[in-house]
Design a protein around this nucleic acid. Structure first.
Lengths: 222, 222
DNA sequence: TAATGTTTGAAACATCCGTTTAACTTGGAG
DNA sequence: CTCCAAGTTAAACGGATGTTTCAAACATTA
């Protein structure tokens, strides 16, 4: 076997437990006992708990970035500028198609959300160092596809969107239950992406407040 | 004094530390030693660490909900339907104005983000049970202000927006630093709200995909 | 002032944590 | 068959955690 059975079982179990309870709240003992491997196996195969967390992310992000980079290369070679909708759709499609790996997309999105909000430093740094370049390629194309937007405005809107995606995806199970009960809607992950796409596009193309200062005072006062 | 000095010092310190490092990562010893109170004080005054966390939230949310409820009452008494922008602006204004309490809004937003992504159960339940009714009043008005939107669509968009707000606010410090370095922009929290408002409104008013099924297959294929 | 209830203080308690050690098993290569 | 490296196992380590205890200090009321 290419990869020890133990390693895969640890990764699978850790991924599920991290997504369910968070990183700090999941102990190595819980992981190893549920995975039916010895406690020392984590430190033997991965070195530390931190390294295990990063390995869980790498298993998702490495294939994603590879696929996304080839998609980006195609877009970069086009002569005319890419419409915003198309750029966003490519990203959505890549995200949906790549995880032919195990585990659902919502699990990973939840992990991503955790990594950004939780435990501050080390995970953000890891993501930045290992996958920051791919992200930069994307933002460069995004700039071309929304040239009329001031840089600062695009920066903030990108993070609004990031928040909407990560937050919704990471609460997906709970929200899906509500949607099922209240609206008889069986939301699959692809349906959610289909809903997100027009919203995100509209958000990106919303009118820019002419005078931020004036708007601000208008909001605060009265 | 109405409230023991110790209680206030614990709440202030816990709030800051929770926002900075997360709930599980912040120990009672760290809190009590920085707050210069005895370790046992937390269990004496609050009962448990969980109860302390909830108390931190209550100190923010109780005055907010009180203010928001009176604002909602005003809107409910109006005869004509409230424009979507106005409804959202009222919420933004209330959020900005209420915390005449200590601590900045970004601290609390970060806590809110943590509560939703981290530790799953008990915090969500607490928020739902104690502040769910106010939230319902708001969503009822929101429905009137966006009557042409299908219920399910509105439900999902509301959570997209929630994600954008919470996520951005909770990463505010990091993002603000980037914005300062890259765009020479000193973003105050009111500026951010001013940026959010048109984006959120546009997101809510984005065109509804006519046939969700068709859109989905369009995205997945090709 | 004396008695009473509340708040603090230092220490101990029982667990749980991530990590390390060292003995043991196992599967191939020489 | 021997040997050795890779993998597994059980046990223990040092430290940190939330919580409890109980005596001392304090404030309040009778």
């Amino acid at each position: 076997m290419a990869q020890s059975d133990t390693v895969v079982r640890i990764l699978d179990t850790a991924e599920a437990l991290f997504a369910e309870k968070g990183f700090a709240e999941t102990s190595l003992r819980t992981i190893t006992s549920r995975a039916k491997v010895n406690l020392a196996a984590v430190n033997y195969h991965f070195g530390s708990k931190k390294a295990l967390i990063q390995a869980v992310f790498a298993r998702y992000l490495d294939p994603f970035c590879e696929a996304f980079n080839t998609e980006l290369a195609v877009l970069e070679n086009k002569q005319q500028t890419i419409p915003l909708e198309e750029l966003l759709a490519v990203m959505a499609r890549t995200t949906l198609n790549v995880p032919a790996t195990k585990g659902s997309l919502s699990v990973f999105m939840r992990l991503l959300g955790l990594a950004y909000t939780q435990a501050q430093g080390h995970m953000r740094r890891y993501l930045q160092e290992n996958y920051g370049q791919t992200f930069l390629r994307f933002t460069h194309l995004l700039k071309l596809s929304s040239a009329d937007l001031p840089d600062a405005e695009r920066f903030w809107r990108l993070h609004f969107i990031l928040g909407a995606v990560v937050f919704t995806m990471s609460s997906l199970d709970a929200l899906r239950d509500i949607a099922l009960n209240d609206y008889d809607e069986k939301t699959r992950i692809a349906d959610l992406v289909a809903r997100l796409l027009p919203v995100v596009t509209a958000a990106m193309q919303a009118p820019v407040p002419v005078q931020p200062e004036k708007i601000k005072s208008l909001v605060v006062s009265c």
